[in-house]
Design a protein around this nucleic acid. Sequence first.
DNA 1: AGGACCGACCAGACCGGTCTGTTCGGTCAC
DNA 2: GTGACCGAACAGACCGGTCTGGTCGGTCCT
Lengths: 200, 200
Amino acid sequence: MTKTSSAMTPSAKAPTARERLLAAANELFYAEGVQTVGIDRIIEHAGVAKASLYNTFGGKEQLIRAYLDSRHVRLTERLLRAVEAAEDPRDRLLAVFDAQVELFAQQTYHGCAFVAASAEAKHGSAIEEASDTSRAWIRALFTDLAREAGVPDPEALARQLHLLYDGGGVSARMDRDPSAGAVAREAAGVLIDAALSKRP
Amino acid sequence: MTKTSSAMTPSAKAPTARERLLAAANELFYAEGVQTVGIDRIIEHAGVAKASLYNTFGGKEQLIRAYLDSRHVRLTERLLRAVEAAEDPRDRLLAVFDAQVELFAQQTYHGCAFVAASAEAKHGSAIEEASDTSRAWIRALFTDLAREAGVPDPEALARQLHLLYDGGGVSARMDRDPSAGAVAREAAGVLIDAALSKRP
DNA sequence: AGGACCGACCAGACCGGTCTGTTCGGTCAC
DNA sequence: GTGACCGAACAGACCGGTCTGGTCGGTCCT
């Protein structure tokens, strides 16, 4: 009845090698960086043979790409869930920062995975590609919500809020201070109100 | 008369091994990352013997530290110069972002060196130490300028502006878009005005 | 003045270790 | 038996770091 080994569905039974690999990558790459963590540690932590990694993903670069893609999926889910819980257009914009506050509170938080991974990535790499995709999505989310709120220049407000979003992540990591989320949220409120006041 | 070999003064003549090493580190570390660039490439680019590196700095970690320290010195000089050129308290706060705009315009700009270097640094490293020092200095600068401007809560405004400052740097690098500087400056103006309006 | 000396430096061989990526034989479930 | 998987060994490049040997300009001593 239950197809456990189909590898296409995560299934409820024993996790496949791919899943364990991705989980290990998520833990180690995120905590220590994609450059400093070697594949030996990944496969050891995943309890997987090296050949399985290369059969499944093809190489470290592709594993990093898959790791970043999975981060992006979880990011969009988290943000969408937070935004949908709010109704007032202004609150929907702020909901993004509420999600950030919640995220920073976890002691596992170690900054934006894309910012960290792209810090030492060469131009044109898969890392840059994944970062661009994720950042474009966030920018579009901010723009849509800003337009929804009825500000005269949604693009401009979106760029400002994106700056705050980035700054919050960097500050929370670099200063080891989760309260950066609250600061970002407060500043966002000011910027939103200023943009709103220009359109009566 | 002239003591050229004293090694304490950079002198005007031929650059010493230490200077060339630091210059090479500044170029390669900043452009490609402190992890990905090996010391072999540093010494080759500097035209220096490997032993000179280890005699002068003691190791890669210390070279990175010296590189970051030199970045910090240049950063403070640049910001101080920009701030001192302005007279109005509000303009002095904005001058920090003017300096950022100018910085982003250089095509060599590749993001904040401290953000990049600390992305894959382990907790308690010399990199973290240097980052903390630099960030504390910037925070103090913002706080002083905010106090000078007479806002009721200088610390709060400083934290907001620091967020914008960080966000501008990240966005300029990740999006390969220097206009993030102008966006940050504009948002800073809004936040400053909002803080100012609370104190008559 | 001239020879011994010395510190700063370069060139490069070399070390142990680690990196990514490959290969192969064995095992277990279906 | 067939495919997915593990454990282990392997190759080749590269890492940070050490060490030897040689060059050169300046300084001191006589």
